[in-house]
Amino acid sequence: MSQLYDLCALDEIPRQGSRVVEAPHGDVAVFRTADDRVFALDDRCPHKGGPLSQGMVLGHRVACPLHNWLIELESGEAVAPDQGCVRRHEARVDNGRVWLSIEG
């Protein structure tokens, strides 16, 4: 079962940046891309657990700040040649608000 949360205004996440959300299971990173879409992933790189929220947002990808792994925001999968996957969550923008749904 999933829970839907009204997170914040879109403007409270910097464009090409992110915010950290304290979720029951651990931190979730919510990203806002240059084209104003939002994506949410667990804030742990599949490589060494680096905080993806602190990485640089490139198109629809984020580069982990520790070792520069690239992670697809849409799927949570690492970009080849790296291999790994991080859990993703449903996020969307509605009327200027960011909505996040987290599996309970």
Binding site: M1, Q3, L4, Y5, D6, L7, C8, E12, P14, G17, R19, V20, V21, E22, A23, P24, D27, V30, W99, I102
Partner: peptide, 14 residues
């Protein structure tokens, strides 16, 4: 604000 994590409030719907 960018330094402070967002705390989850009550969910809107189940």
């Amino acid at each position: 604000r960018a330094f402070i994590p967002i705390r989850l409030t009550e969910p809107v719907s189940a």
